[in-house]
Nucleic acid binder design. Structure first.
Length: 445
RNA sequence: CGGGCUAUAGCGCAGCCUGGUAGCGCGUUCGUCUGGGGGACGAAAGGUCGUAGGUUCGAAUCCUGCUAGCCCGACCA
């Protein structure tokens, strides 16, 4: 993308409403603009990050044979009355009346709707196991929205629902989801620690929250530092293997890791003192097994081999996709701006032309732009008529992981400069070498 | 919802107390110079002062209602 033709309204000053780093930087870098309290428009570069996160979520879910679909944002109140949650949910649910005076609502979640689809269409154990998910906008009418997309009222969420014949099968689904989530966060360049959590309004006996450590997190967390050494890396997981998913779940949940709601000082004290940590965390996902709570309420049953009808065992699982953009920035920024992990950067590499209109610099930039585009590396070319300082400051703010600087000084030696946004380290090399290096560095993207 | 605060140009703010021509910085446009970390000079565009009403010869300024937004708390992914 040529910056001169893009829409990226950056701000030199911080709008007064932004308190925390991610909110400030999302506004300054031109990712979002507020539409009303807790509701945001996603500008092109913010939308690009959001789509990138969605894509990663989709890929990891589908590897586990979970099926994407799309349910509506507006739901009828009837189903919620049937489950009993129309009254339970309280003021957080945005209630709407249509022209025929029917009670509608903007969905805060989709257990009722998905269970209704299931009970209409599935009647036999032979159709199980089944996991369906979607990525859709939700609305929760927070009393006080704040921190930008971290705690908005409208938010994009991946929510999935598993349907299984037995509790054992449903617990495998639980473990399977834990693995897909760990994979998903790792690909985004985030460490999200699964922590034993509280069921909350959705309910459930088995539940883990995934937390990203960050000073501005809303939750206080306690953990054994051993848990932060764990990674899945390149492990290829067989999601049909009950034993393998179980083993990974145990590996990641054996070290002590809990939010303050479930924290137990006595058990925590058994962790060696030098490994005990308390910190703050941002919740970016949660998984639940809740048994037959909704299938009982909504009469979602399947026929077993012996001819009886039994309610299905269910679980639900969520990833806060829009919130993740904020969490990523909280975990990856410095005083100059965002530092995107390579897996999620809106543009993985930026080309900075220090002398716009110079014959040599223009030519080399065009060549780099063409070659990187052809290689699928989606470069952002800063071809504006700006001075070097302004270009560097803008590039630091928007946080592309790699920057190629093309200036007359370096070109005298036939060199351009490749700089890491994260470390600030630079290396001079020929344009051809820079292209080759970037292909290598970004091979996994 | 309780407590506190704010609303003046795209962004950050002053002006209000003590009523009388609507300002500053950044950004934007044009020109000249400049050219490796938000450069300099010159010119210009851009504002129903949140909104409705009241007081007054006259209201951004004083008074009242309303709306929106922000902060703290409770709540929450």
């Amino acid at each position: 993308m040529r910056l001169s033709r893009y829409f990226m309204p950056v701000l030199k000053e911080t709008p007064s409403e932004a308190q925390i780093a991610s909110h400030r930087l999302m506004l300054r870098a031109g990712l979002i603009r507020q539409a009303s309290a807790g509701i945001y428009s996603w500008l092109p570069m913010g939308y690009k990050v959001l789509r990138r996160l969605e894509q990663i979520v989709h890929e990891e879910q589908q590897k586990a044979n979970h099926h994407p679909m799309l349910m509506p944002t507006i739901q009828s109140a009837d189903l919620w009355r049937e489950s009993g949650r129309y009254d339970d949910y309280g003021q957080e649910m945005l209630r709407i009346t249509d022209r025929h005076d029917r009670d509608m609502l903007y969905g805060p979640t989709n257990e009722e709707l998905i269970t209704d689809i299931f009970r209409r269409e599935v009647g036999s154990y032979k159709q199980l196991p089944l996991t369906l998910y979607h990525i859709q906008w939700k609305f929760r009418d927070e009393i006080r929205p704040r921190f930008g997309v971290m705690r908005g009222r409208e938010f994009l969420m991946k929510d999935g629902y598993n349907f299984d014949l037995t509790k054992e099968d449903a617990l495998h689904a639980y473990n399977r989801h834990m693995v897909t989530y760990l994979k998903t966060y790792e690909r985004m360049g985030l460490q999200a620690i699964p922590m034993r959590a509280d069921g909350g309004p959705i309910g459930g006996d088995y539940t883990h929250e995934f937390l990203v450590l960050a000073d501005t997190g809303e939750s206080e967390v306690f953990y054994d530092s051993a848990v932060t050494d764990l990674t899945l890396g390149d492990r290829v997981v067989d999601y049909d293997s009950v034993a393998e998913c179980q083993a990974i779940m145990e590996e990641f949940t054996t070290p002590y890791a809990r939010t303050d709601e479930t924290h137990d000082e006595a058990i925590f004290a058994e962790v060696p003192e030098e490994r005990r940590r308390s910190a703050r965390g941002i919740e970016v996902g949660q998984i639940f097994y809740f048994g037959t709570k909704y299938s009982d309420a909504l009469n979602a049953t399947v026929q077993t081999p012996d001819g009886t009808n039994v309610p299905v065992h269910m679980g639900s699982h969520g990833i806060g996709v829009s919130r993740l953009v904020g969490a990523l920035i909280e975990a990856n920024h410095d005083e100059n701006g965002i530092i995107w992990p390579e897996g999620v950067a809106p543009f993985p590499v930026a080309i900075v032309n220090l002398k716009q209109g110079g014959a040599d610099t223009d030519r080399v930039c065009d060549e780099l732009y063409g070659a990187l585009t052809a290689a699928g590396l989606d470069p952002l070319y800063d071809d504006r008529e700006e001075r070097a300082g302004a270009k560097f400051a803008t590039m630091d703010l928007i946080g592309c992981p790699w920057r190629i600087t093309v200036g007359p000084r370096g070109l005298k030696e036939g060199k351009v400069e490749l700089t890491s946004r994260r470390t600030g380290e630079s290396e001079e090399m020929s344009p051809e070498a820079a292209i080759a290096r970037l292909k290598e560095l970004l091979a996994n993207r």
